[in-house]
Computed example of a mutant assay.
Amino acid sequence: MFTPDPVRRPREQVEKQLRDAIVTGVFKRGDRLPSEATLAQEFQVARSTVREALQSLAADGLVTKTPGVGGGSFVQNIDHESLRNVITGSLETILKIGALTIDEVTAVRRTLEIPAARLAAENRTDEQAAEMRALITRQNELVDDPERGDGDPELFDIGPSIYNLIGEATGNRLLGSFVSAVSRVAIGVYLQELRAGEAEKARALTSVLVEAIAAGDADAAEATMTSLLTIDETTSAPTS
Rank of each mutant, 00 (worst) to 15 (best):
R203K: 15
D232V: 06
D145Q: 06
Q55E: 11
A215H: 10
Y190W: 15
T93G: 08
D20Q: 14
T230W: 13
A53K: 09
L112S: 00
I162M: 07
Q41F: 04
G159K: 01
A117N: 09
V86I: 14
L174P: 00
F156G: 02
V185E: 00
A212W: 03
E147P: 10
G149A: 12
Y163H: 13
V14W: 00
A58G: 08
M1C: 05
Y190L: 07
D152P: 05
G30C: 12
A21H: 06
S177L: 03
P10L: 01
P153V: 02
L135K: 05
A53N: 06
Q192W: 10
H80N: 12
A169V: 04
L228G: 09
R118D: 05
G70R: 04
D5P: 03
A196I: 10
E15M: 12
N85S: 11
G30W: 10
A212Y: 04
D152V: 07
T125G: 10
P10T: 08
K201A: 15
T206R: 11
A199S: 13
E52V: 15
K16G: 02
R29C: 11
I97F: 14
I102A: 12
T24W: 01
R203N: 14
E92Y: 04
L57E: 00
A214Y: 06
E233M: 10
T3R: 08
P115H: 12
R11L: 01
T66W: 07
T88A: 07
T64A: 13
P238E: 12
E12D: 14
D20F: 07
V208R: 11
N172F: 05
F43E: 01
T106W: 07
E233S: 11
R148C: 10
T101P: 01
Q17A: 10
Q139M: 14
V7C: 04
P4E: 07
Q13V: 11
A214L: 09
A129G: 14
S240T: 11
P153F: 04
L175F: 08
L100A: 10
V69Y: 06
I102K: 09
P67L: 09
R124G: 03
R11G: 00
L112F: 08
Q55I: 07
T234E: 14
G159C: 03
H80A: 13
T24K: 03
A199P: 02
P153C: 03
G30P: 07
S56F: 04
A99D: 09
K28I: 10
F43P: 00
A215E: 08
I87L: 13
V45H: 02
I97G: 00
S82W: 02
V182Q: 00
P6L: 04
L83G: 01
A196C: 06
A107M: 06
D103T: 06
T3Q: 07
E154F: 05
T170L: 03
R29K: 14
L112I: 08
V26Y: 15
A204L: 15
L174C: 02
T88D: 02
V7H: 11
T64H: 13
I187S: 03
R51D: 00
D145H: 11
L142P: 02
E113W: 04
L18K: 04
Y163F: 15
I102C: 01
L209P: 06
L194Q: 11
T137M: 10
N172D: 15
I22W: 03
R173I: 00
R133N: 10
G159Q: 02
I78N: 07
D126Y: 08
T235Q: 05
A221L: 10
V75W: 00
A221M: 12
T235A: 11
